[in-house]
């Protein structure tokens, strides 16, 4: 006997609901999956997946690490933007978050996280917490995140937000990022906005041999390029400059 189509759909919906519930339970933060923004978030992740690093492979591979995509598919970005901008939270663009700061364009967050090549046992330092979104993404892939924000109000807001959302492996501190976070050093990975025109020497020091540091260079709304700093096992430093796009400045000779 063939089951009634509606009943069959009902069963499937129940299964789906169960799967969603399982997902919710599996993630450390309850708000993640059961929200009205699931569809735009999925669309955002699909777009990032599709754009990736582009065919020129500036970092040697074309695709963003699927683990990064999976985490970005869970972190509720809309919780990190001001109330009135929630509808645009999953658009592929930076958004103002107050205090003259922005939450980065999702693709750039994905690229920077991809560049970090995070492992589950990694300890990460972030200088420039901002909204806390990037810390949340990193927290989904690493063991622990230490993040420093220079504007106290912003630090407080992000700390409260991350706590409320259950990110208990993120520690936020308001203050000077120049000296890093000595008590938690060394770090496997460091993410830093080089506001003073240079990378603070203490941060280089606190990077573990074999570690990676990623620096976005540019203004609040316009990213210029990314700098990847690698410290090899012997402690010597090498940097790479990466454009977030595939672009060859020379037209082919005719």
């Amino acid at each position: 006997m063939r089951s009634h189509p509606v009943r069959r759909a009902g069963i499937e919906t129940r299964w789906l609901a169960l799967a969603v519930a399982a997902l919710v339970l599996a993630t450390p933060h309850g708000t993640a999956a059961s929200d009205e923004f699931a569809a735009p978030r999925a669309a955002m992740v699909r777009l990032i997946e599709q754009l990736g690093w582009g065919s020129k492979k500036p970092v040697g591979h074309e695709n963003i690490d699927p683990r990064v995509l999976a985490v970005m598919g869970k972190v509720p970005r809309h919780e990190f933007v001001p109330e009135d901008l929630r509808d645009a939270a999953y658009a592929n663009r930076p958004l103002p978050i107050g205090y003259g700061q922005t939450i980065s364009q999702p693709l750039i967050v994905a690229m920077m996280t991809d560049l970090l090549q995070l492992e589950p046992d990694h300890v990460v330092l972030e200088v420039g917490t901002g909204s806390g979104y990037h810390a949340a993404v990193v927290a989904g892939l690493a063991r622990r995140v230490y993040t420093i924000e220079i504007v106290p109000a912003l630090a407080e807001m992000s700390a409260r937000r991350l706590r409320r959302m259950g990110y208990d492996n993120v520690e936020v501190r308001a203050g000077d990022g120049y000296y890093g976070w000595q008590s938690a050093a060394p770090f496997d990975r460091i993410l830093v906005t080089a506001a003073a025109g240079h990378v603070p020497p203490p941060l280089i020091e606190q990077l573990r041999p074999g570690g990676r540091m990623v620096i976005p260079v540019g203004g609040a709304f316009l990213l210029q390029h990314l700098v990847l700093v690698e410290k090899d096992a012997a402690g010597s430093i090498r940097t790479r400059q990466l454009l977030p796009v595939s672009f060859v400045p020379l037209t082919r000779a005719k």
Binding site: A196, G197, H198, P200
Partner: peptide, 18 residues
């Protein structure tokens, strides 16, 4: 005074002086 300006552009990563 609390969080000093440390403006120095293009500083080599090999530099350790503040």
């Amino acid at each position: 005074p609390t969080i000093p300006f440390r403006y120095a552009l293009g500083l080599s990563l090999a530099n350790t002086q503040e």
